[in-house]
Nucleic acid binder design. Sequence first.
DNA 1: CACAAAAACGAACGTTCGTGCTATTATATT
DNA 2: AATATAATAGCACGAACGTTCGTTTTTGTG
Lengths: 216, 216
Amino acid sequence: MPVVQAAKTESRPRKGVRTRESILRVAVDLASVEGLEGLTIGRLSDELGMSKSGLFAHFGSKEELQLATIEMARQIFVEHIVRPALAAPEGIGRLLKLCNGWLSHVEGHVFKGGCFFTAASFEFDSRSGPVRDAIADAMKSWLFILARAVEAAKKTRHLKASVNPEQFAFEIYSLAMGANWALHLLDDKTAMSKARLNILHRIQEVVTPSCPAIKL
Amino acid sequence: MPVVQAAKTESRPRKGVRTRESILRVAVDLASVEGLEGLTIGRLSDELGMSKSGLFAHFGSKEELQLATIEMARQIFVEHIVRPALAAPEGIGRLLKLCNGWLSHVEGHVFKGGCFFTAASFEFDSRSGPVRDAIADAMKSWLFILARAVEAAKKTRHLKASVNPEQFAFEIYSLAMGANWALHLLDDKTAMSKARLNILHRIQEVVTPSCPAIKL
DNA sequence: CACAAAAACGAACGTTCGTGCTATTATATT
DNA sequence: AATATAATAGCACGAACGTTCGTTTTTGTG
């Protein structure tokens, strides 16, 4: 009587989940360039040198593939931007690290085509369904993390008590999105440093006298 | 001997150009929702109750259709946002009218799916070719108009001399894009009024004492 | 090693994509 | 009203889409 074995701790994952993961890593990059709709099963299987049907079996539908791709992008994002920032102690330092991490990941090479979620946001913002919801969810989480960092920086008396965390997080993120836009669409190499100045300036407006010197 | 007749002034345009225009009006709305790649000739011809081939003949290729759609969107944008603002005299008033016009067109119904160009920007920002170039061109024009309005407001002594027009225009536009994003993806009804406050606040930072009271 | 389960494949489905043709209908001008 | 031209429709194409199926290969385990 064959029984599904509960995953042993530390044991090498089954072949299936390993391929699934490698598929999704490529899918994320492909989608960040071509969009989540432009992400095609045929194109993806070509890229990986495997058959369409073999790949397809891992997901069962295109929508499932899209959702899994979003989830993978989310993990990569957390790994590269959120987790490193959480290493810093709460306060202005962590907030700056979040901002800088986000800006770096846009110019850097975490995703091939700039920020995965920004692209996905504008692709699905006028649609409905599970994919759009998943993107919106991820974005709300990110804004929440940013807002919580602002709130914490208020608690450590680095930021003025008058600051509205959600509002402020949103402002900062808007400036960051603008930088992503200018860098990729307008090919403006100076966009990132300008954005760093913009954000720094905006933060500087609301720091308390007791806040240590900041830079990005 | 058939000769191509130069368009008589004030004469009703040929049937061809009339249908072409009505096609493009629908195309703009469709593309603002489904994206410029999602804009499909079959879907578009269905929407208009005409044949694929008949519609196709107007453009000769999908890329031409995309380019024409962008051009039409540009005209609509100018008509609804730029031209009304140019009615106001140079200075802070015109700048505010530009900002307000843009924000209104996002919540309003100029394009079905929010700002056409913002969506197109993020769809094509990692690609290359004529379509991407056309979008980038349109965006540069818009930023230029915005920056020129800032510059003019400096000349009229409404804004401080220290303001960098390009940089400032970019900041304002980033905040506006953020509002578009929050409204449509996060379905945040308060996004627009928040954005108005954000932008107003940012402008207020750089007005001169001689500048009249401003509001958005 | 044997053998069941999992994973990958190859071929084909019906549909839609963009794009050519040719024929027919509508328009505009003499 | 006749006629040349412009506009549209009809049909077909090859390719790619997402998806299904039955078969074969690979993998992990007793």
